[in-house]
Amino acid sequence: MRPLLYNNSLDTLFMVWWATFYAVVAGVPLGLLLILTDRGGLLQNVVVNKVVGAIVNIGRSFPFLILMVVLIPFTRFLVSTSIGPSGAVVPLAIAAIPFFARLVEAAVREVDHGLVEAVQSMGGGTWTVVFKVLLPQALPALVAAVTTTVITLIGYSAIAGAVGGGGLGNLAYTYGFQQYETRLMVVTVVLLILLVTLVQLLGDLVVKRLAGRGSRSSASVRVGLRRPRTAGAPQAGQAPVTATEEPATALTKTP
């Protein structure tokens, strides 16, 4: 049972990793294209925007199971098999690209337009705006989008597994469901829960680090400012004990 779990876990990681890789590689440019060609965008082009938007919407409306079946010839053409982890990567990536592109679009849309104008006023062109403003400023949101995509892909990979894609989904289905090995099924599900939790925690940690640039040390600065104020203006008749306690509560409250 051990090697079975181990191998299938690796298969799941393989599928999710490559599908995420292709989703990011294709989704970021696609999301940027959606933003830049939109009305009022830097490369405003209504036709391109409508066409790309329609393709993305079609890609997103396919139920994953149907998409897998539809893509079988395409998958065979690309990786010369439609089953196993390699065969599953193709439909997983195709499903994830439009999903991630929309998340990129939403993340980049949140970037303050004033920043774009500031860079334009310095003489920056469209690419400067994209690489120096839009992507760096949207980075925390983009990392959150990758986290969401990875977790969605873990779910999809289980569906892919059930129809011959391999991985933990396949294990749970063939051994757990079809052969009544309840214990194995429970272990598999627990493994998936752990995987999802781990990805979410990791993603949140990175987002926090990125978004909190400067704000943590600013909290200590604020505390530092508060301390002399309470010490410099002690109220008449106040016990010295409370005067020393106040900065301590400020310290714990501020973060």
Partner: peptide, 30 residues
């Protein structure tokens, strides 16, 4: 021509992802 005209904004428009120094270096990078 724009790079030779400085502009200051009401809401400052500084990049939160960059340090103060890196913000000032941005036009020089361009």
């Amino acid at each position: 021509a724009r790079s030779r005209i400085g502009m200051v904004f009401q809401h400052f428009n500084l990049l939160s992802s960059r340090t103060v120094q890196a913000n000032i270096e941005l036009p020089l990078e361009i």
